[in-house]
Design a protein around this nucleic acid. Structure first.
Lengths: 99, 99
DNA sequence: GTTCTCGATATAGAAAAACGGATCAATGGA
DNA sequence: TCCATTGATCCGTTTTTCTATATCGAGAAC
C-alpha cells in the first residue's frame, strides 16, 4: 500500500470516527457492507472509485484531483479550523457562518 | 456514471491532453494499458483506486478528499492561474516552479 | 452472567477490473 | 501513396472486488 492509498483510507477512517459513526452506520449510509469497510480501512482491498465516492459522499467528503503544486495549499484549507482560510480579511469575528 | 466519477475521469483526460501526452504516453508513464486508459476516459469502467492514483501521479496530480464545504475554495485554488491563490499572504519568497 | 455494540475475519459466489496483445478507422506527414 | 500515430475496440485469461451472511473476541451496560 503506497502513501497515496494510505492517505485516502486513513482520511476516510478519520472522518468516520470524527463524526461518531460506526462501520455499520457508515455501511448503512454508503451502501457498502461493514465487512468491506473494515477491509478498506485496513488497506486489505484496492477499492473501486464508485466505492470510494460512495463512502466519501456519506461522510460529507468529495474526491478531487489537485495538481501537485497545489496540494500544500489545499491541505492547508482542509486542515484549517474551517474558517480563516476561506474567509477573507474583512471578517474578523470567530463566528462561523456556514450553515 | 455519476457526477463525481465524471469529474474524475474528465480531469484525468484534460490533464493528459494539456500536457500533450497520448494515451500510449500515459500508459508507459503510469503502467496502465492504453486500452484501459481509453475505457477509463470514456467512463466505461469503474477503475480501482490504485489505477486512479497511478494515472494521477503520472500526470502530476494527487487524489485528495476534501470536505464538501471546502470544495469551492479548493476548486478556486486549483483552477486559479497558479499564483495569487496558492500564495497566501504569509509565504512571500516562495518560488515554486517545477521544471 | 447476559446482552449489546464494535471491529475484524471467514466463506462462497457473482461480477468486474486488469492485463496482454491485436486490430481498426482516421489523421497527418514524408 | 506509404507510413506512423492516435484513440477506440475486441478477445481471452487472470485476478480481484463486491456482496451477503455469519461469526469471533473485546469491551461496556444492565
Amino acid at each position: 500500500m503506497d502513501y497515496a492509498t494510505e492517505y485516502i483510507t486513513a482520511t476516510l477512517k478519520e472522518a468516520r470516527k470524527q463524526q461518531g459513526l460506526s462501520q455499520r452506520d457508515l455501511s448503512a449510509a454508503a451502501g457498502v457492507p461493514q465487512s468491506h469497510i473494515s477491509k478498506i480501512e485496513n488497506g486489505a482491498v484496492d477499492l473501486r472509485l464508485s466505492s470510494l465516492i460512495a463512502m466519501a459522499r456519506a461522510l460529507g467528503l468529495e474526491v478531487t484531483l489537485v495538481p501537485r503544486k497545489s496540494v500544500v495549499a489545499v491541505k492547508a484549507i482542509v486542515s484549517a479550523p474551517q474558517s480563516e482560510f476561506v474567509r477573507p480579511a474583512y471578517s474578523l469575528g470567530d463566528q462561523d457562518d456556514d450553515g
